[in-house]
Design a protein around this nucleic acid. Structure first.
Lengths: 123, 123
DNA sequence: CATATATGAATGAACG
DNA sequence: CGTTCATTCATATATG
């Protein structure tokens, strides 16, 4: 592969950005320094520093990196012995009813359509 | 994954709706015809026409599609080089701290009266 | 060349 | 409604 960081599709397919080792190092460095969800401004700076095509690439990098970091953490964690229900901050999830009790104790059920209709009809 | 259009988790995981090409075509057609934020009534019709699980799926589709269309617009508008494309706050960013990891608050003053989406579909 | 893994990209779902 | 999260898809890359 080339070290240009440019993307080229040998095919006629969509080209993926292919960051060089050095670029990844920079990105990881910034991530380690606390940049988890850089602002548009920051992304633009980083992108030009990397000479990446669009800030979009940098944005995706951070999104994926963050997501996968959490993912691996989660997998490592596996379980606590005390039912990981701590994620209850998923609020009702249902589209609240005009006068629904809300907060179904039943937890995050499936998108059980407890929705009352937005305009007066049941979806 | 199945291409049935229905969602099934081969696992015990949460299933995502996986619209078929045809369904997407219908949705895009409607979007192109001007449906940007369909009413509950329209969503219901569309949903049954697609045989989607719930109108919720259709609702989300339009929300996402609209949002991402605007994002692309913004991205194209700024291209790389002018700042901001971003899925991030395009809010003022009054202080451009060279290293502010946290997202610019930009006045997140929300009394949070719990106005969630699909309830008052009249967005 | 086949399989496994790493990762850019896309998108359904949901939050604030 | 914009943003953020989670899951998935597709391809590049590593390994044998």
């Amino acid at each position: 592969m080339d070290g240009s960081g440019a993307n080229s599709a040998s095919n006629g397919n969509v080209a993926r950005w292919n960051p060089t080792k050095e670029q990844v190092s920079i990105l990881e460095g910034l991530y380690g320094q606390g940049s988890r969800t850089p602002t548009a401004d920051q992304i633009q700076r980083i992108a030009s520093r990397l000479r990446a095509y669009e800030g979009k690439n940098v944005f995706y990098w951070f999104q994926n990196h963050k997501a996968r970091q959490r993912q691996k953490e989660k997998e490592l964690q596996q379980q606590h012995g005390c039912l990981g229900f701590s994620y209850l901050n998923r609020r009702c999830l249902y589209f609240h009813n005009s006068d629904a009790p809300a907060m179904a104790p039943g937890l995050v059920n499936h998108p059980a359509p407890c929705h009352s209709s937005p305009k007066g009809m049941s979806l």
